[in-house]
Amino acid sequence: MRYVIFVLWIFCGLTMEAQNANPNEAQVYSNLTTALKIPEDVKQLSLRDQHLFYLPDNIGDLQSLLFLNAMGNNLESWNPNLLGLNTLEVLILKQNDLNYIPKDIAKLDHLILLNLAKNKLTDIPETLGQLKDLQFLHLSFNDITELPETITNCKQLEVLELDNNQLRFLPQNIAKLNGLKTLNLGYNQFYEFDPAWLIIKNLETLNLEHNHLIKLPTEIKNLKKLKTLVLNDNQLESLPEGIAKLPQLELLLLSNNSITTFPNDLSGLKNLKTLIISGNTIDQSEKERLVKELPNCKIFW
């Protein structure tokens, strides 16, 4: 249980700071009626968990708004006036009932963070690729089957969370996102490790848990900056030598596969601190070898 909590902290904690209003920068309003009395002064607005079914038309009066959190409501549609808030940098509409993203999302061209997780989205408009300043994109827990090629025009993107969707592949030019540091593809329908992912040189966290992967490419060693690799609950039977040549790797999750042995040379895993391999068939002699060759690593069997 301790390592489960630790992993949840890794994936939830890293971007929480970017999604929270900052009262040190400006007052955070939580009452829309109050905010609309002084629209030119309102920079941060939190309407979280207020049982809203729609945003009123006069939301468009808040022309200085930088931060809007309307998560945990019952929104089913986008008010067009929301898309006129072109100073907006953070938009959080997580956990609503939205089943589309309007093409005019491109009007919000100062967005740094967009969180649409836990909605009912099935596709993404090509115009999303016009958000040139976007750094954090959260689309987890939807029913998305594919991403538009234009997503790779978001050159500033650092975090892309796509877990718990219905994806089988990513755009072939995904490597154009060379600033990407976190890629979460867990709980999807990937059957192969796409070689295109190996070209994302700045990747630090890669999550592919609960997919259908049978093998990994030995070229995984090319991800030299990788710190966290999550591969639990796939169908892996063996590991390539390249996985032991990731010098920055700190956390490796391999639980619930069919792995019996590890690469012969583990000396390249100098920074590995946590290895989780429960739910595999590792015999006692292999366990003893892992303990010996990874003396600074905590291993969970």
Rank of each mutant, 00 (worst) to 15 (best):
Lys107Trp: 01
Asn202Glu: 15
Asn31Lys: 10
Leu160Ile: 07
Asn24Ala: 10
Ser64Trp: 00
Gly279Trp: 01
Asp283Val: 13
Asn74Pro: 05
Lys245Gln: 15
Thr150Glu: 11
Leu216Met: 06
Cys12Ser: 15
Lys224Ser: 13
Leu85Pro: 01
Leu290Pro: 05
Leu253Phe: 03
Ile259Asn: 06
Val230Arg: 14
Asn264Met: 12
Ser258Lys: 13
Asn142Val: 07
Ile5Thr: 14
Gln27Met: 12
Ser46Ile: 03
Met71Gln: 14
Glu89Lys: 15
Pro125Thr: 07
Thr281Ser: 12
Pro56Val: 07
Glu288Lys: 15
Glu241Trp: 00
Met71Trp: 06
Met71Lys: 13
Thr33Tyr: 09
Asn119Asp: 03
Arg48Ala: 10
Ile243Val: 12
Gln248Ile: 04
Leu254Arg: 04
Glu204Lys: 13
Asn296Ile: 02
Asn256Ala: 09
Trp197Tyr: 06
Asn24Gly: 11
Asn173Val: 07
Leu52Phe: 00
Trp9His: 13
Lys245His: 07
Ile10Glu: 04
Asp49Ile: 08
Pro102Met: 07
Leu98Met: 05
Leu91Cys: 01
Ile144Leu: 11
Val291Asn: 14
Asn188Arg: 08
Ile299Ser: 10
Asn232Thr: 12
Tyr187His: 12
Gly179His: 14
Leu52Gly: 02
Thr15Pro: 01
Ile299Asn: 10
Asn222Cys: 09
Pro23Cys: 08
Leu8Met: 13
Asn280Glu: 07
Ala196Pro: 03
Ala175Pro: 07
Asn31Ala: 07
Pro125Cys: 05
Ile199Val: 12
Gln95Met: 04
Leu108Ser: 03
Gly179Lys: 15
Glu126Trp: 01
Gln135Gly: 08
Asp97His: 15
Leu113Ser: 11
Leu213Thr: 03
Asn20Met: 14
Leu147Glu: 09
Leu275Tyr: 01
Glu237Gln: 11
Ile277Gln: 08
Cys297Met: 09
Ala244Tyr: 04
Ile5Trp: 11
Glu209Asn: 14
Ala106Cys: 11
Leu167Asn: 03
Leu8Gln: 15
Asn86Trp: 01
Lys132Ala: 12
Tyr187Asp: 12
Leu231Arg: 05
Glu237Ser: 10
Glu293Ile: 03
Lys221Tyr: 04
Thr260Phe: 01
Lys43Val: 10
Lys103Glu: 14
Thr261Val: 11
Ile174Gln: 00
Glu158Asn: 06
Ile124Pro: 00
Leu216Trp: 01
Ile144Trp: 04
Leu91Gln: 00
Leu91Phe: 00
Gly279Ser: 05
Thr127Asn: 09
Asn256His: 14
Pro171Glu: 05
Gln50Cys: 03
Asn296Met: 02
